[in-house]
Amino acid sequence: MTMRSLAAYLFVLLLAFPAFAVEPDEILEDPVLEARARDLSKQLRCVVCQNQDIDSSNAGVARDLRILVRERLVAGDTDEQVLDFVVARYGDYVLFRPPWKPTTYALWIAPFLVLAIGATAAGAVLLRARSKSGPFGLSVQEEAEFADLKKHLEQER
């Protein structure tokens, strides 16, 4: 599909269901469930939008999913079950927090790995710097003080 026809297509979708993020009539009576619903909606990606969660999206499908999430919660689903329900129909793509599975091990491990490698390298730099400086290295401040003292002594002499 060309970009233009895609744009036209999305445009149709938007016109068809004017709505504005979370609508008051969607909101649940129970504040605890509603808070969970809002939280879940923020983790779910709107499938027709450009990188938006369904909570802030005004697309029709996003609204349907928001209502669906609330229905599942009212029916007694756990957060996990609700997410699984949506993933079963739309795939991992809808999760803003990628699941922990073989294809995403690399993603979740990478920050730790980079940190470990970086820390090792930094440690090596520190150790090498120490071996060069020797046990009697003075700090810059001490060097300055020492120089002052020396000058002082020389003047007194």
Binding site: Y9, L10, V12, L13, V47, V48, G60, V61, D64, L65, L68, R89, Y90, G91
Partner: peptide
């Protein structure tokens, strides 16, 4: 009518 079957089919639009 309510788009529920659409969600079952995983559609993102028509």
């Amino acid at each position: 009518l309510d788009g529920r079957a659409g969600i079952e089919w995983g559609i993102s639009g028509v």
